[in-house]
Design a protein around this nucleic acid. Structure first.
Lengths: 164, 164
DNA sequence: ATCCCTATTGATAATTATTCTCATTATCAA
DNA sequence: TTGATAATGAGAATAATTATCAATAGGGAT
């Protein structure tokens, strides 16, 4: 949630002679207010609830703009799981539960302090690094062992009877 | 390229009463022969060159099957960059050049030895971990500073004049 | 070698997520 | 207030992947 405030955003916008529209304000606000990881569709839904008449195309356009302005990051949190979040100062990484799709953030200073320097020592220039960890959260592990019903649409545990 | 050989594959297939078809053989062979990271379309092209009449749908179906059998891994090597590779014994991670799309593999034992154990200590069960690093390889850095023409279709360097 | 069951395939339609098109609207500097 | 043009809405277009279904082909049993 440490995003430039609206007036800060406004100056960024004007400096590039872009325009500060109501749609952009709404979309940015939704992103700032949420601490979840939303996709374009979810952002679209929330913006509409706030009554703005914003089209899905505009949501996509705005997200692309915000990405390019460095205000928003697009994250691939696993297979078929692209989400957006406001840009953070601290580098951080993501664990995704394959059953309930919950996202848990964590730090891993080894990446910035050891792994990336090692890569750059080979002459490569690093601009981005994502560590994507998948598995099962504590709750869903419990449910599975109990054989409980849960949102198994996304279960990726290989199933002997359905390999195809 | 340390994949079960064809006879090993055959036994895996039969054990699940699946069938060893010519299409599957061809697709698997393409994956084994290549040390690049291919997408479904590229696999499709190569299989067709070997003259088999294989449909794209079958390529997708086979890749899904191989994934579920643990013979093949699907990798998200960055934005819009899903590729397949034969399953490896050693965990490894990927650097992708944003300019030429070259992929360089590297090890990072800190991930398996420190980061994952820390995550699991919190009660999470980890089944997968991908470290995706993006940036510019030595060659493309050189080209850029010289202002050379190169495949800039994929350049992601924010461009002040084209933010939208 | 032949038969039969059914797993697999090819061709193509359907689906999903995202981007594009273009006429219309709205922002904002003058 | 006006004018230049950035931005939008609505829907068409695109691209990647999956689903449908009749036809084909493994491979165990005979």
């Amino acid at each position: 949630m440490d995003l430039p405030n609206q007036s800060g955003f406004q100056s960024v916008i004007k400096a590039r002679n872009l325009r500060m529209t109501n749609q952009r304000r709404q979309i940015l606000q939704v992103l700032q207010e949420s601490d979840e990881h939303l996709d374009a569709e979810a952002i679209y839904d929330r913006v509409r609830q706030k009554d703005a008449r914003v089209s899905l195309a505009t949501v996509y356009r705005s997200l692309t703009l915000f990405k390019n302005l460095g205000l928003v990051d697009e994250r691939n949190l696993g297979e078929d799981y692209r989400r957006f979040e406001t840009a953070q100062d601290e580098p951080h990484y993501h664990f995704t539960c394959l059953a309930c799709r919950k996202v848990i953030e964590f730090n891993a200073p080894e990446i910035e302090q050891k792994i990336i320097p090692q890569i750059e020592a080979q002459g490569l220039k690093v601009t981005e690094a994502h560590l994507i960890v998948s598995g099962y959260c504590a709750d869903c592990q419990r449910d599975q062992t109990r054989g409980k019903k849960h949102a198994d649409t996304h279960l990726r545990i290989p199933n002997q009877t359905n390999l195809r």
